[in-house]
Amino acid sequence: MHELFEFPADGGGLRRAFANFPSGVVAVCAEIDGTPHGLAVSTFVPVSLDPPLVSFCVQNSSSTWPKLAAAGHLGLSLLGTDQQDAARSLGARNGDRFRGTELHRGTGEAIFIDGASAWIEGVPKAQVPAGDHAVVILRIHRIATRADVDPLVFHGSRFRRLRAEAS
Rank of each mutant, 00 (worst) to 15 (best):
M1E: 11
L4R: 14
F5R: 14
F5D: 11
P8R: 08
D10K: 09
R15D: 10
R15N: 09
R15S: 12
R15I: 09
A19N: 11
N20W: 10
P22C: 03
V25L: 13
V26C: 10
V28M: 02
A30D: 02
A30L: 06
I32N: 00
T35M: 02
L39M: 14
L49A: 08
P51C: 02
V58T: 12
Q59N: 08
T64V: 14
P66C: 09
A69P: 10
A71R: 04
A71C: 03
A71S: 14
G72D: 11
H73V: 02
L76W: 06
L79V: 01
G80T: 08
Q83H: 06
Q84F: 00
L90Y: 01
G91Q: 01
A92G: 14
R93Q: 12
R93K: 15
G100F: 03
E102W: 00
L103Y: 00
R105K: 14
E109Q: 14
E109V: 10
A110Q: 05
I111M: 13
I111E: 09
I113K: 03
D114M: 02
A116R: 05
A118L: 09
E121G: 03
P124K: 04
A126Q: 15
A130Y: 06
G131P: 08
I140A: 04
I143P: 00
A144P: 01
A144K: 08
V149Y: 08
V149E: 10
D150M: 12
P151I: 00
V153I: 15
V153W: 03
G156T: 11
G156E: 09
G156N: 14
S157Q: 13
F159A: 00
F159R: 00
R160A: 13
R160V: 03
L162P: 09
E165G: 12
E165F: 13
A166T: 13
A166K: 13
A166R: 12
